[in-house]
């Protein structure tokens, strides 16, 4: 418990809409430890993105407790505890790649010299050294998403929250980026929350897989992965991998049958 970075207890979130209340999250209990790589998987409407947004302080839960680094999510946001990567890279077209990565640093008031040093470091981290002066439209979709990850890493938050960051990319690029992301996680020792709807992606990346289901959005299974932290791509053909993937699939199916 001492290592808990993110802790949710009996978390509820109900949206009031014109068609009546929508239970986006109901009774969500979860503890994420430091250095965990946690994937949230489930069909659309299961609340996986909503939960991530709650952690980020972008949504306010209507019940229960949620702490991030021991603080409320809003305090954690103000303390700049996390970097957030959206599904769309969302780079500003009028800024160069370097300029985009500098954006949070400018807002947070880092010195010019510090900014330059950090931009250089994170660009190397995501394998984009030399692209600092390019504009987003000059980069492929995968490179743009890497730049947006670099942007989230630039100010050294301990937590990285990623909302289907590779959802719009083709499978080959996605495999490559998954591999890169694991390396980056090993090097930076960050705690990562990762939303996806791909079973292989979730199993390949995570130390902990959270299976969710919709109406109301809730957790149906939490799987602690027995896979080693060092994971080559072909680990996906091992029996252990297939067994975990099977359990995730079962969890997803169970969630659906309860409808």
């Amino acid at each position: 418990m001492t290592d808990a970075v993110i802790s949710a207890q009996h978390l509820d979130l109900t949206f009031q809409t014109g068609d009546g209340p929508v239970h986006a999250l109901r009774d969500v209990n979860l503890t994420i430890d430091k250095g965990d790589f946690v994937s949230f998987i489930g069909p659309s409407g299961c609340g996986k993105t909503t939960f991530l947004r709650c952690i980020a302080g972008l949504e306010t839960p209507t019940g229960g407790d949620l702490t991030v680094n021991g603080m409320t999510p809003d305090e954690a946001r103000k303390a700049r505890a996390y970097g957030y990567v959206f599904q769309a890279a969302g780079l500003y077209p009028w800024r160069t790649i370097g300029g985009n990565i500098r954006l949070p640093l400018e807002i947070m008031g880092f010195s010019k010299a510090d900014q330059a040093e950090r931009v250089k470091r994170v660009l190397e981290l995501v394998d984009l050294a030399g692209f600092e002066k390019k504009y987003p439209w000059q980069l492929s979709g995968g490179m743009q998403q890497r730049a947006s990850i670099a942007r989230a890493l630039a100010f050294d938050a301990d937590i990285l929250l990623m909302d289907e960051p590779f959802g719009a990319l083709d499978e080959i690029v996605r495999d490559h980026l998954n591999e890169e992301l694991l390396k980056l996680w090993a090097r930076t020792e960050k705690t990562i929350g990762f939303v996806t709807h791909s079973i292989p992606e979730a199993v390949y990346l995570s130390t902990k897989i959270v299976v969710m289901s919709p109406r109301p959005g809730r957790i149906t299974d939490v799987i602690d992965s027995p896979l080693p932290r060092e994971r080559p791509l072909d680990i996906r053909d091992t029996p252990e991998f297939i067994a975990i993937a099977h359990r995730v699939r079962e969890g997803l199916r169970a969630g659906h049958q309860e409808d």
């Binding site: 302080g57 946001r77 103000k78 957030y84 500003y92 949070p104 807002i107």
Partner: peptide
């Protein structure tokens, strides 16, 4: 919304959002 959310995650002030996002986007 996601661009505004991004600014929100940086805890950016309204004036920072105006200068760094809204004004350039409106050109």
């Amino acid at each position: 919304q996601s661009q505004l959310d991004l600014m929100h995650t940086y805890n950016a002030s309204k004036s920072a959002v105006l200068v760094k996002l809204r004004l350039p986007a409106s050109v």
